[in-house]
Simulated scan of single mutants.
Amino acid sequence: MQGTRAAVLAVLLTALATMSAPAQEAPFLRSPVLTLDQERLFVDSQIGRALTEALEDASAALAAENRQIEAELIAEERDLTERRAALPSEEFRAMAEAFDEKVVETRRVQDAKARALAQRREVGQQAFYRQVLPLVAEIVRERGGVVVLERDAVILSAEQVDITDEVIAAIDARLVPEALDPSGAGPETGGEASAE
């Protein structure tokens, strides 16, 4: 059984190797089936990197804010502990309860900020892919494609049917990283990026 699989794989590899020769003469291979690496579109395009950097900056700022708040709460707790012996028990209990409430509220606020940041990442990526879709469709039409498969889901294909680099080049040429909405609404297009 394994020998049969190896033979089939060898035949497929030979067929793919022969497909490569004409593709080197033409700028691309016309094929009804094309592949695309969606993650690379986001990671390797200028606008995807800009969104990622903005989100990383916001995440780092939130982490720094959390560390600062934690240090302040630790100092406040230490001060409260040191004052305990000098305070009447009722007054100390009231102060301790107020401190506990402050800790709980602070945690709630900071957790909400972290959730908002995660949502901003998700919304930004969704907006990115919505903006990219017309560019992908245009390249698919140019290539004579009828279906695009995620590259990671394909076991074997000719390199020339992958359109990832073409789409990244189109994104970099036609989507504007500077127009990124800092609220997380995602990228905006330049003048040429609309679908035909």
Results as ranks from 00 to 15, higher is better:
Met1Arg: 07
Gln2Trp: 07
Gly3Ser: 12
Arg5Val: 06
Arg5Leu: 15
Arg5Lys: 10
Leu12Val: 09
Leu12Lys: 14
Leu13Gln: 15
Ser20Phe: 03
Ala21Cys: 00
Pro22Cys: 06
Ala23Val: 08
Gln24Ile: 02
Glu25Phe: 05
Glu25Leu: 13
Glu25His: 08
Ala26Gln: 14
Pro27Phe: 04
Leu29Met: 14
Leu29Thr: 15
Arg30Met: 06
Val33Met: 10
Val33Pro: 00
Leu34His: 02
Thr35Gln: 04
Gln38Arg: 11
Gln38Phe: 11
Arg40Thr: 05
Arg40His: 01
Leu41Phe: 04
Val43Glu: 07
Val43Ile: 10
Val43Ser: 06
Ser45Phe: 01
Ile47Lys: 00
Gly48Arg: 04
Arg49Phe: 02
Ala50Lys: 12
Leu51Pro: 00
Leu55Gly: 11
Leu55Ile: 12
Leu55Arg: 10
Ala58Lys: 12
Ser59His: 09
Ser59Lys: 13
Ser59Arg: 14
Ala60Gln: 13
Leu62Phe: 02
Leu62Lys: 03
Ala64Ser: 12
Glu65Gly: 03
Asn66Lys: 08
Asn66Ser: 09
Asn66Thr: 05
Arg67Pro: 00
Gln68Val: 08
Gln68Gly: 10
Ala71Leu: 05
Ala75Gly: 06
Glu77Ser: 14
Arg78Asp: 11
Asp79Met: 07
Asp79His: 06
Thr81Gln: 11
Thr81Ala: 15
Glu82Ala: 09
Pro88Lys: 00
Ser89Gln: 11
Ser89Trp: 00
Glu90Gln: 13
Phe92His: 02
Arg93Gly: 00
Met95Gln: 05
Glu97Phe: 09
Glu97Met: 10
Ala98Lys: 08
Ala98Gln: 11
Phe99Ser: 04
Val103Ile: 11
Val104Asp: 12
Glu105Gly: 11
Glu105His: 12
Arg108Lys: 14
Val109Asp: 04
Asp111Ala: 14
Ala114Trp: 04
Arg115Leu: 13
Ala116Arg: 11
Ala116Trp: 03
Ala118Ser: 12
Gln119Cys: 00
Glu122Asp: 14
Glu122Val: 13
Gln126Asn: 13
Gln126Gly: 12
Ala127Val: 09
Arg130Gly: 07
Val132Phe: 08
Pro134Ile: 01
Val136Arg: 06
Ala137Asp: 13
Ala137Glu: 15
Glu138Gln: 14
Arg141Val: 09
Glu142Trp: 01
Arg143Gly: 08
Arg143Leu: 05
Arg143His: 15
Gly144Ile: 03
Gly145Ile: 09
Val146Leu: 08
Val148Arg: 04
Leu149Thr: 06
Glu150Pro: 10
Glu150Thr: 08
Glu150Gly: 11
Asp152Glu: 14
Ala153Val: 06
Leu156Val: 15
Glu159Trp: 08
Gln160Ala: 15
Val161Leu: 06
Val161Tyr: 01
Asp162Ala: 05
Thr164Pro: 01
Thr164Asn: 03
Glu166Gln: 15
Ala169Trp: 07
Ile171Ala: 01
Asp172Glu: 06
Asp172Ala: 04
Arg174Lys: 07
Arg174His: 09
Leu175Glu: 02
Val176Tyr: 01
Pro177Gly: 04
Pro177Asn: 07
Pro177Trp: 06
Glu178Gly: 07
Ala179Leu: 15
Asp181Trp: 01
Asp181Ser: 07
Pro182Thr: 05
Pro182Arg: 05
Gly184Val: 02
Gly186Lys: 04
Glu188Trp: 07
Glu188His: 08
Thr189Leu: 14
Thr189Glu: 03
Thr189Met: 11
Gly190Ser: 09
Glu192Leu: 13
Glu192Ala: 15
Ala193Val: 02
Ala193Glu: 07
Glu196Met: 06
